[in-house]
């Protein structure tokens, strides 16, 4: 519980972060920034877990634990994505989204 800040304001913040992420995911040309957008989406949901846990069920810890899980998963996912991007770079000497079209069929 944070003094002077209501749950609605924090949820609004997390929604903003989420949609910024979604927007970035759809529109960015660079794979690294797409990856960063995914991180934003994950962070928004982690924030939601923590906030809802703190404001609505202060006696429990599940939300906080879940957010730790999300952080761990995000780290793993990033490592994997970076590995893919590096291999892609070796292949086409670029990290642009438009250069990945080769993989279609």
């Amino acid at each position: 519980m944070i003094e002077g800040i209501s749950i609605y304001e924090i949820l609004t913040l997390s929604s903003i972060v989420f949609f910024v992420g979604v927007y970035g995911f759809f529109t960015r040309e660079n794979l690294i920034t797409v990856l960063m957008s995914i991180e934003l989406i994950l962070n928004a949901s982690a924030l939601n877990f923590v906030i809802i846990n703190t404001y609505l069920y202060p006696d429990f810890l599940q939300g906080a634990v879940f957010s730790i899980f999300i952080i761990a998963m995000a780290a793993a996912e990033t490592a994997l994505a970076i590995a893919i991007i590096i291999n892609l770079y070796k292949l086409v000497a670029s990290v642009e989204v438009k250069d990945t079209e080769k993989l279609k069929y």
Partner: peptide
């Protein structure tokens, strides 16, 4: 119908969302 596949993953994500 394979032309429907653009190869851009963002298009697929758009479809999904």
């Amino acid at each position: 119908i394979k032309g429907m596949q653009s190869g851009k993953f963002q298009d697929y994500a758009m479809g999904f969302i």
